[in-house]
Computed example of a mutant assay.
Amino acid sequence: MEKRNATSDFILLGLFKHTRSHLFLFILVLIIAISSLTGNALMILLIHRDHRLHTPMYILLSQLSLMDVMLVLTIVPKMASGFLTGKRSISPAGCGLQIFLLLTMAGGECFLLAAMSYDRYVAVCHPLRYPSLMNWQRCLQMSMGSWFMGAADGILQAVTTLSFPFCSVHEINHFFCEAPMLVRLACSDTSVFEYAMYICCVLMLLVPFSLILTSYSFILTAVLHMRSTEALKKAFATCSSHLTVVGLFYGAAIFIYMRPKSYRSANHDKVVSAFYTIFTPVLNPLIYSLRNNEVKAAMKRLLGNLANLKLQ
């Protein structure tokens, strides 16, 4: 098959067609994306401004919100502009940047969620040792480590994916550049890279996921032995929120990156990709705020301060 010029653009076929039903879905996605940006930005603002939330748990949560904001901004503006203007082309550099940013945020969230599960494990199982085991230095190391591991995976997959020669058919049946979709267009043998990408996904997804399951197995054992009803409710509230986020994020990511090639469907991939890049980020602040009394109290204090400023 004819190989294309390495400098020519890719064409993103997009998520929606120009029909009335798809226009409704497009508006719905925009509303969800804006809600996601607003909710996560508000979560970052609350944690930054309220000194009562300056704890490792909420610092890690602020990093999760920051990753979600950047994830939405990486995907939605390009998708929206392509649908509204009809210009669906994206340069190889732009495509590589999307892959890098996507995997930096998604990979970083994998390790960040594992760090958050360790924080909950220490808080529930070793409360007296919490100040020493989860100090500011450890929290900073976990946050920076999550960003670094995500960025390392992102740059590796972006550079390797774009190094392949691509065939004359350069249409990507997706609404953003994603490594598994781009590899399908390569004219050379990609089996070694696909195997390496699979191993990388095992490390990025299953290793942190195993750590999360291990942490929560210890937490569950400790919670079941609690005699205080109030402590039991608080432990269940914080841990169930985190487990909900973990289930949503890891379920979608494993579906996209760890299925055998023979079971892949472009339409299914687009729907699931939309779920973990657009819909999941809007759920995170809702889950953590609606089920967390400390966040709700911080919101009331912020609204009270704003009301006082208006009266002055």
Rank of each mutant, 00 (worst) to 15 (best):
M149E: 02
H174E: 13
L203A: 12
A158W: 00
A231P: 00
K234G: 02
M181S: 12
V183K: 06
A222I: 13
A151T: 04
K234T: 09
M181T: 04
I256V: 13
L203P: 03
L203W: 12
L224S: 09
R184K: 15
V202C: 14
L232A: 05
C239K: 08
L185R: 04
W147R: 08
S215V: 02
P260K: 02
L205S: 05
W147S: 06
A179M: 15
W147P: 01
I256A: 07
L182A: 07
M197R: 09
Y216P: 02
D153C: 12
Y216C: 01
T229K: 14
I254R: 08
I199T: 03
S228R: 08
V202Q: 14
L205C: 07
V202W: 11
S241L: 06
A186M: 05
V223A: 08
L156P: 00
C167W: 00
R184G: 03
R259A: 04
L213Q: 14
L224A: 09
L213D: 06
L156S: 11
G251F: 07
P208A: 07
S241Q: 14
P165I: 04
C239D: 12
A235P: 00
A252C: 14
A222D: 09
T190K: 11
E178K: 05
T229F: 11
S241P: 00
F164Y: 15
S168C: 10
Y257K: 05
F164S: 05
I155Q: 00
A222Y: 05
S163R: 14
N173A: 08
S228L: 07
H174V: 03
F166V: 00
V159F: 11
R227I: 10
Y198T: 03
P165E: 15
L185V: 03
T190G: 06
L156T: 11
A151Q: 05
A252F: 12
A222E: 15
D153G: 03
H170P: 00
I155G: 00
A235Q: 00
D153Q: 12
V192M: 11
Y216M: 03
T238S: 15
V223D: 02
V246D: 08
H225K: 15
M226W: 03
T238V: 12
T214Y: 09
